[in-house]
Lab assay of single mutants.
Amino acid sequence: VLKALERTRQLDIPDEKTMPVLMKLLEEAGGNWSYIKLDNYTALVDAIYSVED
């Protein structure tokens, strides 16, 4: 979780936006981090930006 938060902080995305999206992605992935961690957490960042749209 810390590495995911560090990555999104680099992009000026607050933890308050990151955590709900991260928890949803983890739930959808059955707790499997490998998809979320791919390409420096690209799936997480993309999911956060899609929620903002």
Score class of each variant (00 low, 15 high):
1 V>I: 15
1 V>P: 05
1 V>Q: 07
2 L>A: 15
2 L>C: 15
2 L>K: 14
2 L>G: 12
2 L>P: 08
2 L>S: 14
3 K>P: 05
3 K>S: 11
3 K>A: 15
3 K>D: 15
3 K>G: 14
4 A>W: 05
5 L>N: 03
5 L>A: 03
6 E>A: 09
6 E>Q: 12
7 R>S: 05
7 R>N: 03
8 T>N: 01
8 T>F: 06
9 R>Q: 05
9 R>C: 06
9 R>F: 03
9 R>I: 01
10 Q>F: 10
10 Q>Y: 09
11 L>Y: 06
11 L>M: 08
11 L>K: 03
11 L>V: 05
11 L>H: 07
11 L>P: 00
12 D>N: 15
12 D>H: 14
12 D>Y: 10
12 D>V: 06
12 D>C: 15
13 I>G: 03
13 I>T: 03
13 I>Y: 04
13 I>E: 02
13 I>R: 02
14 P>M: 05
15 D>R: 02
16 E>D: 11
16 E>L: 07
16 E>G: 08
16 E>Q: 09
17 K>G: 02
18 T>P: 00
19 M>T: 04
19 M>I: 15
20 P>C: 10
20 P>M: 12
20 P>Q: 11
20 P>A: 11
21 V>Q: 04
21 V>T: 06
21 V>S: 04
22 L>V: 03
22 L>F: 01
22 L>A: 01
22 L>Y: 01
22 L>K: 00
23 M>Y: 09
23 M>E: 09
23 M>Q: 10
24 K>Q: 11
24 K>L: 08
24 K>V: 07
25 L>T: 01
25 L>N: 01
26 L>I: 08
26 L>K: 00
26 L>M: 05
27 E>V: 10
28 E>P: 01
29 A>V: 12
31 G>M: 08
31 G>T: 04
32 N>K: 07
32 N>S: 11
32 N>G: 06
33 W>N: 01
33 W>H: 04
33 W>D: 07
33 W>S: 03
34 S>C: 11
34 S>K: 12
35 Y>A: 13
36 I>Y: 02
36 I>N: 00
36 I>C: 01
37 K>Y: 12
38 L>K: 15
38 L>C: 08
38 L>P: 06
38 L>Y: 12
38 L>E: 14
38 L>R: 13
39 D>V: 05
39 D>H: 09
39 D>K: 08
39 D>F: 08
39 D>E: 09
40 N>D: 10
40 N>H: 07
41 Y>Q: 00
42 T>R: 15
42 T>D: 08
42 T>M: 13
43 A>Q: 10
43 A>M: 15
44 L>R: 00
45 V>L: 13
46 D>I: 12
46 D>T: 13
47 A>T: 06
47 A>C: 06
48 I>N: 01
48 I>Q: 00
48 I>H: 00
48 I>P: 00
48 I>A: 03
49 Y>E: 08
49 Y>A: 11
50 S>E: 12
50 S>Y: 10
50 S>P: 05
50 S>V: 10
50 S>I: 10
51 V>A: 14
51 V>E: 14
51 V>Y: 14
52 E>M: 14
52 E>K: 11
52 E>G: 11
53 D>L: 14
53 D>C: 14
53 D>T: 14
